[in-house]
Design a binder for these strands. Structure first.
Length: 290
DNA sequence: AAGGTGACCAACCGCCAGCGT
DNA sequence: AACGCTGGCGGTTGGTCACCT
């Protein structure tokens, strides 16, 4: 069986009875030479059949290892650099929709690998949940994301846009909550980005814009999340977020009545904040940036 | 300056599904 | 139908680096 035979042994058995392969199979970090071998071979012959590819390329690696190296690092379309604020926003939404299906989430983020997104989630998001002393899937944490973190992200995204001071548009107020995106489908059932919101004064033009890895929309480590939590409570304790069993919305939210409609609507479920069309549009925006 | 600590990320591991034989 | 191979996925680990004391 696949999962009974150790990985190396399985590879060896399929490795054309090559005794040397069994002895010399390498693990650990890839060298420049190995990268070069793999890159050149895949460039010439294409992906797939990784075990035989590894042999024919002269790599003393498992096919799995070659595949992973190619997909996560060598592939030309891999996007390197920090996760941008826009990407963070999308990851949060997508995770609420798909859970830990990293490869699915990665499909919406051009150039990002599932591994990268997974690492982001574990190191940044789960850390915050831990600091808040709640589970990442708990309602408290999801509420914190939904009502504090995401609006804060939106605010930051808008703040990084040089022309973020559009006039005459309700979504350009400085208040991060009242100004934030109408991500929900409106009453007419029309996906928001399918029409008005895709225009030059739309939120999406703010969010997507022309920012790139070199823009100041770059993520600076964990500060975004931390800041968001600090908005709610000083010591990061979950008690600051949840009292009497209910989430204490930011005063902005309550004050302007956004909690019952707009993008915050949707009941207790985090699903369907955005429509599929919204996601596709955002995906396209990221793709254009890349 | 040196040691400790935590964050980040590349890579590995185990499991599973799909496909061909 | 059973088996083996391959690729894909999510979880986990270990190395490296930056920051703090």
């Amino acid at each position: 069986m696949d999962h009974i035979i150790p990985q190396v042994e399985k590879y060896d058995l399929s490795a054309a009875n090559n005794e040397e392969d069994q002895v010399d199979l390498r693990k650990g970090p890839w060298t420049v030479e190995e990268d070069s071998l793999l890159f050149n071979y895949v460039s010439l012959h294409g992906e797939g059949r990784w075990n035989s590819l590894a042999r024919h390329a002269g790599l003393k690696r498992t096919g799995k290892s070659c595949r992973l190296r190619w997909l996560n690092y060598l592939r030309p379309s891999v996007r390197r650099g920090n996760i941008t604020l826009q990407e963070q926003l999308l990851i949060l939404e997508l995770h609420s929709r798909y859970g830990n299906r990293w490869s699915k989430i990665a499909q919406y983020l051009p150039g990002r690998t599932d591994n990268e997104i997974k690492n982001y989630w574990r190191t940044r998001v789960q850390k915050q949940a831990k600091q808040l002393k709640c589970d990442v899937n708990s309602k408290q944490f999801q509420d914190a994301m939904r009502y504090v973190w995401i609006p804060r992200l939106v605010e930051r995204i808008q703040a990084t846009r040089p022309d973020s001071s559009h006039s005459g548009q309700p979504n350009t107020k400085t208040n991060p909550v009242s100004s934030n995106i109408c991500l929900e489908n409106d009453a007419s059932g029309v996906a928001p980005w399918g029409s008005d919101l895709v225009g030059p004064n739309s939120f999406m033009s703010d969010v997507s814009g022309t920012s790139s890895d070199t823009s100041d929309a770059q993520v600076s480590s964990v500060s975004d999340i931390t800041d968001c939590c600090n908005l709610v409570g000083g010591n990061g304790s979950v008690e600051n977020l949840s009292m009497n069993g209910t989430f204490q919305y930011g005063s902005d939210i309550q004050a302007n009545g956004q909690s019952d409609h707009g993008w915050l609507s949707g009941g207790d479920s985090l699903e369907n904040w955005w429509s599929e069309e919204d996601l596709r549009f955002f995906q396209q925006q990221l793709s254009d940036e890349f």
